[in-house]
Every structure is written in C-alpha cells, then in structure tokens.
Design a binder for these strands. Structure first.
Ligand code: FES
Ligand code: FES
Lengths: 144, 144
DNA sequence: TATAAATAGGATAAGTTTATCCGAATTAAA
DNA sequence: TTTAATTCGGATAAACTTATCCTATTTATA
C-alpha cells in the first residue's frame, strides 16, 4: 500500500508530534529507535519532509526535528503520504493505465474508484493530532 | 497499490477469459500486445498463475493459455491478486508492523482497517466474468 | 572564537522488482 | 518420426527502493 519510506515517515511524524507537544526536539537516531527503522534512511525521509514543509528542522547544537504545536491538528496523513509517495495512490489507475480517465476507464475503474476515494477521504480526515493521542493514551503502538 | 506483475496478471486474465469464451487459446506474445506489457515478463506471471491454478496452460503446438468457460464467473479478482502479490494487502498492517493485531494496533489501525476491508470485499466480489464483459461491450479498455 | 552537537547531502552498497534472453521440454500435425 | 509451435524454467541484466557511510555545514554554548 505505502512504501517503506512512507511508513517510516508517518511513524516519525507521530513521534515528532508527541515530543513537540512537550517542547522537545528529536534526532533521527531517537526517532529510529522509537519506530524501529534504520536511522540513516529515516534521516533522508525527514529531510524530504522538511523540504516539503510538513515538519521543521533546526540545525546545529540543540537542534532536531519538530513541528509547531498549532499545526499538529492541521497536518493530515494525506500530506505526509503525498510528500513521500506522491499522489498516484489518489489519482492513479488501479491497473496501471497511463492515467485514470472516466472517458477511457480500465475494467476495474468503477469498483476501484470507490475504494481509492474512501482511502483518500480517510487520509485527508486523519490528523497527526489524533494519531499522536492514540500513542500517548497507550492505545496504539509505533513498533513491534 | 498492486505490483506491476499483479496489474499485468489481472489484465492478462481478462484477455484470456475473453478468448476462452470463443474457444481460443492465447500466447504470452498476443497477451502482451493486447495489454501493453513486456512479453517475457508477462510469460513469467502467467506461469505463476498456472502454478497457482488460477488459469490453465496447454503446452506444445496449438497450445496457449486458457481458462475453463464454466470457471470464468467463479474466478475472483482476489484470487489473482493473492496468487501474485500474496495476502499482505488483505491482512498486513498499514504502517508495516510485523502483523496487524487488534491487541497491539498501530496508530492508524482503526481507520485503515475499514479501507482495507472494503478493498478486500471489492476484490472478493468482482469476478473475471464482469471484467471481461466490460471489455467486450467496449465500455472499458486494457491499454493506453 | 573554539568546540561540540546537530541536520544536509553526496556517494555507494544491498536488496527487490521488473525485464530480457536462451535453451529444454512438450505436443499437435505433417 | 520429424518438424514447428509452444510453454517452462534458469540465468542474467536493468531499474528502482531501501539502507549505509562519510563529509560539509550550521549553530548554541563555553
Ligand atoms: S482507469 Fe483504472 S482506475 Fe480509473
Ligand atoms: S496494526 Fe496497523 S493496520 Fe492493524
């Protein structure tokens, strides 16, 4: 469904959000430990998320990754997924035709569209805030 | 969503079904031309589908790939996808945890499960027959 | 200003998926 | 029984994703 990079990216954002609530910045190494991912690869993904302005980074001593507290509720899963995996998952044809086109549909178009749109809705309606709360409350987990 | 191999596999099955209705066997080359795929790679995928008993093959002169007419309505998309991509898409965790477990859910579990189950339903309820009819009637396309 | 702690980014390696090629095995028909 | 058409399967290559390593750059603090 999502690439490994995207899975790591989502989990990383959640962990960053939790820490940002407490005013703490986190390093790729801390993040990687918490989400059980290779730290150097995770660092690359974080760089991409910064370039796409999903999260913020502060360089130098006492730096790290963070996200502004006020933004946490407004950042949606859809933004993270789009920043890393692009928007093929939202717009692409399920059978890989050049583009998904009502006028020239593939055989599964009608049925696939429903599922794809539900996925899109889900990603657009889910905020980093609620995901972070699931972790804080202990009702969900980032690894194992 | 699906691998390239799976996309080719689904399209190939549809084309095979259409021809089997007319008692014709088809070769990887014909299939590849019709679905716009690399023919040698397509042949490998067809071999896998034969091993998994989704379709049949007849070796030697006048051989080719086919599917028994009576089966076409009973073959579901889900079988094809499972034969090629496995069942991670049906059972796997959206964030890549070792397994999707209600007792140890990832942060997106509740929301992801809904989408994943809808996808599963769609694939289990869609038969090769209806997809083939979409092509025959000219209301859907296998390439471009 | 020097130092240490951090992100940024390039180069490279490892692993997986996608793709190609070729010869072996099979089979219908001449 | 020979031939030609065809699937099967192994070996290999190309492309992409995932992962590692090292150096440069930035920046707060001593
Ligand atoms: S054309 Fe294939 S999903 Fe729309
Ligand atoms: S645990 Fe992640 S989807 Fe169920």
């Amino acid at each position: 469904m999502f690439s490994k990079a995207c899975e790591y990216g989502i989990k990383a954002c959640i962990f960053i959000a939790i820490n940002s609530y407490e005013g703490k910045r986190v390093s790729p190494k801390e993040i990687a430990e918490e989400i059980n991912s290779p730290h150097a690869f995770t660092a690359k993904i974080l760089q991409a998320l910064v370039r796409q302005r999903v999260i913020d980074s502060v360089k130098g001593a006492y730096g790290g990754f963070e996200v502004s507290k006020n933004e946490i509720q407004h950042i949606k899963l859809a933004q993270i997924v789009k920043a890393i995996d692009g928007d093929r998952i939202y717009n692409g044809c399920g059978l890989g035709l050049e583009k998904c086109d009502e006028k020239h549909p593939c055989p599964v178009h009608d049925k696939f569209k429903g599922v794809r749109d539900e996925l899109k809705q889900m990603l657009e309606n889910t905020s980093l805030e609620e995901l972070a709360l699931n972790i804080k409350s202990g009702s969900a987990f980032l690894k194992l």
